[in-house]
Amino acid sequence: MKLGYYPGCTLKTKAKNLEDSALASLEVLGIEATELERWNCCGAVYSLADDDLIHIVAPVRDLIRAQQQGYDTVITLCSMCYNTLARANELMKNDEEKRNTLNDFMDEEPDYFGDVKVVHFLNFLEDEVGWDKVKEAVKVPLNGLKVAPYYGCTLLRPKEVGIDHPDNPVMFHKFLNALGAEAVDFDSATECCSAYQSLAHPDIALKVSYDILQDATNKGADALALACPLCDYNLGRKQGKMLEMFESANEVPIYYFTHLMAVAFGVPIDRNHFELNRESSVELLKLKNLLSEVPA
């Protein structure tokens, strides 16, 4: 397998902490994933209209790039990129008519038939690495850390591209258990954080996200782990605003799932870029004695 890595725009700026902690963890596992040399924004959301193919051009172009550079598999970290790329790939594989239209439109690119495999990092860990090997690589077991695994929408739905069962997923749980953490079940694990509504309806987004955090802490979670930079924005970065708006709001430490892996693997702390998180993320790890040093 020749593994290419598609980062997505936000992982190069505000979610650098997702990218770097993931790449550091891959190094520990001895896995080489090379970033595509040339790529564009995938469009973040998949087009949901039968007559709207122009919004599928962006993800398909990325898959063409992957193929041109000789990768048979593309690994993604951002849930939204994963969803968009995987669905575009399914379309190119299965819908001959739309495939022809898209290939004709992109007359400056080679034709594409959906041959590149799109996998999410968690899928890759389960299918290609295996939880046992993840467990073996753990140097600092996350004992005593109760984490609510937040899947959100785009990792699970629709079923054709979901990494696990849409209503009763367990993959994130297995991941946390392999790192020695306790996975805390909560009803909102597969609910939407309101995604891009933070742009159009920030007040609604704040309330919906607040409810998710309340649910997690009510079930006894110390923290919440997630996989998507937009979830991180709504559930994490907006917590200051939540504390202002809702009387019973409490600070909930938020991690990218890759943060927890990097910490458990004993990766140097600066690779986690905790400066992009709220302070509570580092504070909790210190409190649980999971960090030997303070971030650079």
């Binding site: 997505g8 979610a15 924004c41 469009g43 973040a44 959301v45 742009l199 159009a200 930079p229 937009l230």
Partner: peptide, 18 residues
């Protein structure tokens, strides 16, 4: 200030939908 605060995917997806 909103644009500086929001992650890129919020703008990309929000503009696509709205």
């Amino acid at each position: 200030e909103e644009v500086v605060d929001l992650p890129q995917i919020a703008m990309v997806s929000g503009f696509r939908k709205m």
